[in-house]
């Protein structure tokens, strides 16, 4: 890789000994790993390995029974997801979780909600600060729309868009939060080759231009090996590998659990 605008820094997120169970099903067992500032960190593993659960724990959708998350030096284990969002973590979803009834523009504008502060009364009258705020954030959102090349779809209800574009809107909504840490849950699932290439480019651009730290789950090994700096491997809720793509590729446990079953 060429020299990057934002060199990899210290640890900003540390997952320590996290265990999560749903009733009798153990989704995660004492998983620990860390994420460094500005890096692209991948989580891989076979189906049911606990990857999505891991993201859900990091951003507060699930609360682990054991273990802690340390983010920017602050420790938490049962923070609600809106508080996690306020601390600068955003994410996309594996099975699109867009706001179906809203337009593309409104979906992305909703991603700015944390930054919009005028009170209800001003909004009701839509005067002064409320109107100014709407326009300011519209500009910010338009920059993201340009960045992800979805200008043509602004006013279309998001439910009417094809799948690949919906994935892009999902990313746009997450980016609208201007996150410091971005979690991507299978951003390329169900895409064709061109769409995947576009998405890879967007992810790398986000990392490069904004310096956003990225944690992503992905099934396409080629993509993972190409774009990530370090990789965590989960299997049956346990961490079985951690390191650079090359390390992981050479790890026997990983090969047995995952790569050994060639696709």
């Amino acid at each position: 890789m060429t020299a990057r605008a934002h060199p990899i820094g210290g640890v900003i997120l540390a997952v320590e000994g996290v265990s999560l169970a749903f009733g009798g099903v153990q989704a995660l067992r004492e998983v620990s790993f860390d994420v460094r500032e500005h890096e692209v960190r991948a989580i891989i593993g076979p189906n049911g390995a606990g990857k999505s659960s891991m993201l859900n724990v990091i951003n507060g959708v699930y609360h682990p029974q054991q273990g802690t998350i340390r983010y920017l030096g602050r420790e938490y284990h049962d923070m609600d997801s809106h508080e996690v969002a306020a601390s600068g973590i955003s994410r996309t979803f594996q099975n699109l979780a867009l706001f179906k009834g809203m337009t593309v523009l409104d979906n992305i504008m909703a991603g700015r909600n944390l930054k919009m502060r005028t009170n209800l009364l001003l909004q009701a009258l839509r005067i002064g600060p409320a109107l100014r705020e709407e326009l300011e954030h519209r500009e910010a959102v338009e920059r993201i729309i340009d960045f992800l090349e979805i200008q043509a779809y602004r006013k279309i209800p998001v439910g009417r868009l094809p799948y690949g574009l919906q994935k892009r809107v999902d990313l746009a909504r997450a980016l609208a939060m201007e996150p410091r840490l971005l979690l991507l849950d299978e951003p390329m699932a169900g895409m064709n080759v061109e769409e995947k290439q576009d998405m890879c480019r967007f992810i790398l651009d986000v990392n490069d231009q904004f310096g956003t730290t990225i944690v992503l789950i992905e099934h396409d090994m080629g993509v993972v090996m190409d774009i990530s700096d370090r990789v965590v491997v989960l299997d049956y809720g346990r961490k079985i590998g951690d390191g650079t793509p090359d390390d992981v590729r050479a790890n026997q446990a990983v090969i047995d659990a995952y790569l050994g079953v060639s696709h």
Partner: peptide
């Protein structure tokens, strides 16, 4: 769920 994840 998604609404809460984006900070609402």
């Amino acid at each position: 769920v998604a609404a809460e994840v984006i900070g609402i």
